[in-house]
Each structure stands twice: as C-alpha cells, then as structure tokens.
Design a protein around this nucleic acid. Structure first.
Length: 246
DNA sequence: AAGCTGCTCAACCGCGAGGAT
DNA sequence: AATCCTCGCGGTTGAGCAGCT
C-alpha cells in the first residue's frame, strides 16, 4: 500500500519557485500568518504542496532571514553546537538567529566538514582522526544515568543522536594546566533547546551556556570569561534541566 | 569557445512525532 | 487503544554556476 501522498501530485508544480509564486506566498502569510500548511496552497492560489510552501517560506522568504556568508563567530558556534547535538540542524539553527536548518546543514556539508577534516578532526565525532593532528577532545560518553532513567531506557533504548545527556570533557590543555578539573556535565533537555530561548540582541560574545538559552548572569553563564572551553567554567557542573520551559 | 568537473544550495522525499478524533 | 492527519526534521538530489583544461 505505502503511505498516501502529502498532496495531489498531478496538480502541483515542482522545482524552482517563480517570483509570482513567492509574491503570492508572502502576501498570503502576511495576511493570514503561518500555519495550516496543508490548506495554505489552495487558499493562496498556489499549485504547490503545503510542504513545499512551508520550506520555501522558512528557508527563503521569511523576513528575518540573514542572507550572506557565515561569520567566523557563526562558524565557530556551529562547530561547537554540532559537537554537542550532532546532526540536529533545527536545534543548531535555533541558536543562530536568521539562519535556517537547511542553510546550516548545507554549510556544514560543504564547508565545515571539509575544514575539520583538513585539520585532522573527524566531523562526526569531533575527535582527531587516526593519525590526525587535531586537539578537540569533546566526549560523547553518556553521563551516569539515574536509576529511574535506566528503567525508562529498558523500554526506550538510548539514542546516541538525541544527546539528552551529554558529557563534555575540557580540552587536554586544561587537564595539563589544572589537574583537579572535573568534567563539566551538561544535561540538555530537548524541549529546552527547541524553545528557542536566548538573549535578545544577537549572539555576539555569548558564552555557551547562554547560547543554549541560559539567562545571562545565571549560574553557569560565563559570558564575562572568554578563557573557558565552550564558555563553560571547567570546574563547574552545569545542569541545563532547569531550562525546561513551555 | 567548448567541454568537463566540482561545488553550492534550493528543493524534494520519506519518515517519525504528536495531536485530534 | 487505534487510527488518521498534519507538521517538522534530516538525508538526498539535481540544476545552475564557476573554474579549469
């Protein structure tokens, strides 16, 4: 049987969008707002499926999109977020105002991956590839799970890609310089990340905690201290479970 | 100038999650 | 509880472009 098509394919346009289609879509969303993508094409007089309209709006027509090249800061943040979140492009995009998941995914695949490989870093694990010269030591070891969590995981196996529990080890330089440093454990709930919280006014100069939605100045925020790995204070234990929000 | 190759990025596809019935 | 429906996500594709021979 297979799944039913998302739309009436025989009567939908495909491929590149025309200026007229863009104008129609923008005008409709300005008048009626986003949402109800399934019925939008018909209502807007577009011969497109809802999915296509949504994608066009989100990735290209949204007025708050930031076009143009990625800055060094954005580049850096993408690498850091990817090291924590993996290929969760929508979560990464939520931390980069004006950028879309599709744009970041493309940028990663065409630029960042190659750059990391060139530095001898595995873009998947963010560890030095065998024989490589990289110095990134981000660990993907899961934090010790509480008993309740373990029981849940008997039914729902841990998905490594989900990264609900993340363990970050400071780089080797910290281990050399500060012997008593404890690994910082960051537990990030997916809902918190999806909520899209963050400081108003852009990301410039935000610590990693703030990039993940922490209130500036809250425990775990280290905006004023540029010297720490990923903006985390090496000896601090950060628990982002407190970020859960509606 | 023509042909080839590699790269970029907009768009498509299939699937899973979650809400509604 | 089961099924349906819609939305959103991540992987993949392919048209268009730039650079090279």
């Amino acid at each position: 049987m297979g799944r039913s098509p998302c739309c009436e394919k025989a009567h939908t346009n495909k491929g590149a969008w025309t200026k007229e289609e863009d104008d129609r879509l923008v005008a409709y969303i300005k008048a009626h707002g986003e949402g109800c993508w399934r019925s939008l094409p018909k209502a807007a007089g577009l011969m497109r499926c809802g999915k296509s309209c949504r994608l066009r709006w989100i990735n290209y027509l949204r007025p708050d999109l930031k076009r143009g090249n990625f800055t060094a800061d954005e580049d850096d943040l993408i690498v850091k977020l990817h090291s924590l979140l993996g290929n969760k492009w929508s979560l990464i995009a939520a931390r980069l105002p004006g950028r879309t998941d599709n744009e970041i995914k493309n940028y990663w695949n065409t630029h960042v991956r190659r750059k990391l490989l060139g530095r001898g870093i595995d873009p998947v694990t963010h560890r030095p590839v065998a024989g490589g010269g990289g110095d990134v030591t981000i660990s993907f070891q899961a934090a010790a799970a509480p008993k309740q969590q373990v029981e849940v995981e008997k039914k729902v196996p841990r998905c490594p890609d989900l990264n609900l529990d993340l363990c970050i080890s400071p780089p080797s330089c910290y281990q050399e310089e500060e012997e008593d440093i404890k690994p910082a454990v960051v537990v990030v709930k997916r809902e918190a990340l999806q909520a899209g919280h963050g400081h108003a006014g852009g990301r410039g100069g935000l610590c990693f905690g703030c990039s993940l939605g922490l209130q500036k100045g809250a425990p775990g925020c280290s905006c004023s201290d540029e010297s720490h790995f990923l903006g985390l204070r090496p000896a601090a234990m950060l628990d982002f479970r407190g970020l859960e929000m509606k």
